[in-house]
Design a protein around this nucleic acid. Structure first.
Lengths: 209, 209
DNA sequence: TAGATTGTTAATCGATTAACAATC
DNA sequence: TAGATTGTTAATCGATTAACAATC
């Protein structure tokens, strides 16, 4: 039996871009798209796109291209978006509010089902139709509402504590916006969204222009 | 003369992490740190760290380690943070407000000097001590205040238009939060901060647990 | 059929890891 | 001096690009 090659992280990170472009193509009423056109739209080579897709199966038709609806459904399935994960945001400061209002979550199929904060002035408020609850109820609510993904939007000093609580509550993954290296069990999936990297690398490049 | 090898993108993206950890070490009053300890703090191998740093010069002392202050100053210089770039945010919705209040900008040495929006209800408001101005004045203000970096936090449909205006106004770099592929001149530096990638890749991984 | 476009293998390029001499 | 730790070269690993046969 042929060994299936591991999928590269780079490939996985491009799938959401393909997914989004396919949605746009759907909106435009397009039925078929070639790797060439997808590539032009995204600034990615067509070979790269074909290779990425081929690592999950044969989704195209030679001489024709890819059926937009079908490919979008397939990529959605690969990314697990059809699981419609329930997500919660912890820390309803400016960033937490922005994330709670982020419309792309909905487009991607995520359900925002809980918001948590520790500040009595924030608890009880409603953001994007979801009520902010006391973080002390986190564990109970995570279990009750079957929350699989926790989003950390608290200051760095509190982030590890929140991560520990999310782990203890049994979430499957953490999306972390705090600029620190978290200590979580090996089995926990964590994605760090570190905003200083992008801005710093921009600074690096314009310094050398 | 030996040809200087190009610096990898991966290396540049790790520099801000080193910078941040060095600042924390400074706060802890530490004078010296080894690649080993830096590595443990960041979850990066010490070899990787030494290699990254060595591509810019010899900053360490064999048998001793790196002097915290000196290395931090050096990395800051490499990243160009000592230029104290003037930055502006375009689009003062939830995300724009969150970014305007993001304290790490200050820590990294950036100066937030302008906020722009097109909504008359938003123009005139003050966010984090900076007044929101009419986007129609963008070009004049960018020149006047010597703004080098523009941050795009408008909805996708308006993002290309804003990018065009920023380019025309003469910024050196763009930090884009809109989920679209921008068309900008070859010479313009643009960093895309695409939030759907992180969340989607998290979904990919937990789907396979 | 001729033209177009995928899927896949081979070649190249780039990044990380291992090993170790240099030296503080 | 002995122990520690850097800087650098070589080896490995991983990702992208090129090329082209298969086929719609």
């Amino acid at each position: 039996m042929k060994k299936t090659n591991a999928i590269s992280k780079a490939t996985i990170d491009r799938l959401p871009l393909y997914f989004r472009t396919l949605r746009l193509l759907q909106d435009e009423g397009r039925d078929i798209v070639s790797s060439d056109e997808l590539g032009r739209r995204l600034g990615i080579t067509p070979e790269q796109i074909r290779k990425d897709l081929a690592s999950f199966g044969q989704f195209g038709k030679k001489g024709v291209g890819y059926y937009v609806n079908e490919l979008k459904r397939n990529i959605g399935g690969i990314l697990g978006l059809d699981n419609h994960w329930n997500i919660a945001i912890v820390g309803i400061g400016h960033l937490g509010v922005a994330l709670a209002n982020y419309q792309n979550f909905v487009t991607l199929g995520f359900n925002l089902v809980a918001l948590f904060d520790q500040d009595p002035n924030v608890i009880g408020r409603t953001v994007n139709h979801v009520k902010v609850e006391d973080i002390s109820h986190l564990k109970a609510i995570v279990k009750q509402r079957n929350i699989q993904i926790g989003i950390i939007a608290v200051p760095a000093a509190f982030a590890q504590g929140v991560a520990d609580q999310l782990v203890a509550a049994g979430v499957k993954g953490i999306w972390n916006f705090a600029p620190i290296k978290m200590q979580v069990p090996e089995t926990m999936h964590i994605v760090n969204e570190d905003l200083s990297i992008g801005l710093s690398s921009l600074s690096y490049h314009i310094t050398r222009m």
